[in-house]
């Protein structure tokens, strides 16, 4: 986040991802890049700080784990309805309820179908390694600003706690306030030069206009589906079976495929078939 040039992080401790907030406080980015880091009083407050910051055009984010992400859903719905960019990270643990602190992928539907009230979607990026986790911060922010929508990184407790070698991205400078005003003419940060006032709201009492808004949201989601659907294809050219997976499960799936192919190769050799 610091290297991306993010402007603010607002979070609340929850296992298994409290290290994000701990590390940010330890790094003190407000002394170097000027990034704001704040421990909120709850996940509800944290997501609303993200909402408040996002509406000003700044690059803001939060991270949490499953029960915390449930608490944030109201705010996510408001972010989506207001068409403001933000990056959210859910390092999933097992549920429902207080559940377990161990890894899970049980929030898949919550992430992919929206999660809060109303008909909205987020861009969901699912890393299967620490490297992807690092790379997806920049990707998530860039996509959020490109489409003025919410991006989330859907990690899981194993990826969240994993130690792996990682190549960190180059430090990007934070945008200046004037750059933000130029890039985000819709943003709420004061009427500089006495421009017409900006209001960001998710409220629309006129039913026809609310319907229009929803058509616009859906058109944006279709555009994102068309342009931004991503997956890594491994040895799919000659496959008889296709395994799809994300996160930690993707690593298990890759190994499974490797073993299955080795076993098949052995069988083919024994039977005198050509090995491919």
């Amino acid at each position: 986040m610091i290297r991306y040039g993010a402007d603010g992080y607002f979070g609340y401790p929850i296992t298994p991802q409290s290290e994000v907030l701990e590390k940010l406080e330890e790094e003190m980015p407000w002394e170097t890049t000027g990034m704001v880091v704040l421990q909120a009083e709850s996940e509800v407050a944290a997501i609303n700080m993200v909402y408040g910051g996002a509406m000003t055009g700044k690059a803001v984010c939060t991270s949490t784990s499953s029960p915390g992400f449930s608490l944030m859903q109201e705010g996510v719905s408001y972010l989506a309805a207001s068409e403001v960019p933000a990056l959210l990270i859910n390092v999933q643990r097992g549920g429902p309820g207080l559940g377990t602190i161990h890894a899970s992928q049980a929030d898949y539907f919550q992430a992919c179908k929206g999660g809060g009230h109303g008909d909205y979607h987020m861009i969901v990026l699912a890393p299967s390694s620490v490297q992807e986790m690092a790379d997806m911060v920049a990707l998530g922010f860039d996509l959020a600003f490109k489409y003025r929508c919410v991006s989330m990184i859907l990690a899981d407790g194993t990826i969240g706690q994993l130690m792996e070698k990682v190549v960190l991205p180059e430090q990007r400078p934070r945008r200046t306030d004037d750059e933000i005003r130029e890039q985000c003419p819709w943003a709420v940060n004061g009427r500089k030069g006495m421009r017409p006032s900006n209001v960001v709201t998710s409220l629309e009492l006129d039913d026809d206009k609310m319907e229009e808004n929803n058509w616009r949201f859906q058109a944006c989601y279709r555009e994102i589906e068309k342009n931004e659907t991503r997956c890594e294809l491994i040895d799919t050219d000659d496959c008889d079976y296709l395994i799809t997976a994300f996160g930690t499960t993707a690593r298990v799936a890759m190994k499974t495929m490797e073993l299955a192919r080795a076993e098949a190769r052995g069988r083919q050799e024994r039977q005198g078939h050509p090995v491919r």
Binding site: L38, M49, G52, G53, M55, T56
Partner: peptide, 9 residues
């Protein structure tokens, strides 16, 4: 909470 973020940023 919103105001907190706006003023800090």
């Amino acid at each position: 909470a919103l105001a907190t973020a706006v003023k800090r940023l």
